[in-house]
Design a protein around this nucleic acid. Sequence first.
RNA 1: CGGGGUGUGGCGAAGUUUGGUAUCGCGCUUGGUUCGGGACCAAGAGGCCUCGGGUUCGAAUCCCGACACUCCGACCA
Length: 478
Amino acid sequence: MGNEKKMVEEITGMEVDFAKWYTDVVKKAELADYSSVRGCMIIRPYGTALWENIRNDLDGRFKATGHENVMMPLFIPESLLQKEKDHVEGFAPEVAWVTHGGEEKLTERLCVRPTSETLFCDHYANIIQSYRDLPKLYNQWCSVVRWEKTTRPFLRTMEFFWQEGHTMHETAEEAMEETRRMLEVYASFCEESLAIPVVKGLKTDKEKFAGAENTYTIEALMHDGKALQSGTSHYFGDGFSRAFDIQFTGRDNTLQYPYQTSWGLSSRIIGAIIMTHGDDNGLVLPPAVAPVQVVIVPIAPHKEGVMEKAAALQERLRAFCRVKLDATDNSAGWKFAEHEMKGVPLRLEIGPKDIEKNQCVLVRRDNREKAFVNLDDLQTQIPVLLQAVHDGLYQKALQRRENMTYAATDLETLVETAQNKPGFIKAMWCGEQTCEDQLKEQAGVTSRCMPFEQETLSGTCVCCGKPATSMVVWGKAY
RNA sequence: CGGGGUGUGGCGAAGUUUGGUAUCGCGCUUGGUUCGGGACCAAGAGGCCUCGGGUUCGAAUCCCGACACUCCGACCA
């Protein structure tokens, strides 16, 4: 109990080399593996199961807010991509092009979707005629491709998995509400299901999505003090509607352009889970999405009755949690380390001595606390402990973020903080991009967002000293 | 895309400076003893030394090129 010895020698210490620690965890926990396609990864069964749980949870939240799933094509004709100017400028440098079908050269190139705004708009133009057709609340689960220069498993890969919601509304107000609503869905998902605290806010013009009027974001702080944008929600106004000629007849019998939103959350969130909760023994998974919530490790399984008892427990536990029985012939110690590496929230040990006393040992992954629990109480105790792990993870992450959040009211302090103290820096800003550029130049930080929860640290911009318009959270980002 | 680093059985490395036919640990297979924090003994299997050229009697080793991974920047979910 409370043994601080590092038991998994294969994983590089977090303090030693954070980047290496990260990839070690990805590989040793069997989440993903490299493929022979540059910049693309193979998401292994364990990683896929994790993504499926994330997906099912989020999908339920989308359905509950009235959204429907659709499936759009993988390809976008060049002409379609070209329709919205800012959008194409933003994405053109990183799209993959299909130029041939078999041996034949195509008359028009097709791009592999980097995002699907254009496809949705093209379709919406055909199916929206009247205000009665609105709102359209569509979502799709798919993968997209962006020709990235440098890649890292989950955090940045050339192909990644995500969901993209695309909605059309009768009024700007309605669309703006939708944008905010979906950001809240992401934020609650992160906090309730992933135990990741997030800062909700608005992106500056410099950081917003190509073609959007407003981009909202949730920003999480990783173990190493770098920020990870964990979900975004965009308000498009009627920009795309005009570019794609999407019009409907309004209640007053005039032709109008609908207002649009889009929002996305990607498999990158798995990187956030790793870097928020993980430790030197490997992955630590939030119970709500863990593929295995409880792993049963039989002790001395060759002894009479142990395996039978363990198997019977597995059957019982199936009714209320995701449970796995480790029946391999590895030693008990091996199994402990193995499942810790894979982040299983609870371990259940059952051996001859326990069976005699009708009990078992439950060990939490987050703090290694052990508890002897009567076998008759498992149905109530396991959910309690899973919840305790969740709360423990959330509190620890929140505490760390607070400890790593600083404030600066003058440039010198900001630069000094950025250079010496990894984390978020709160500072006032005048709203000018030149100041953003200068902070990037001098302190190496970018604006993560203008949080909804504003504070007044001072009256003037941290950079230029002119009157400030808002408080911005700055940081180094993934 | 700029600057560094790396590439040797499944994994981690030694060997490269000084060219001579590949070594170690872990894992894997089989048998046996073990099992409450990565057990032990014995016997085995497994290598186009990232790829392509070149130099040489001979290349993991020297030269040229490509690719991949990785770190630091710039760019992006």
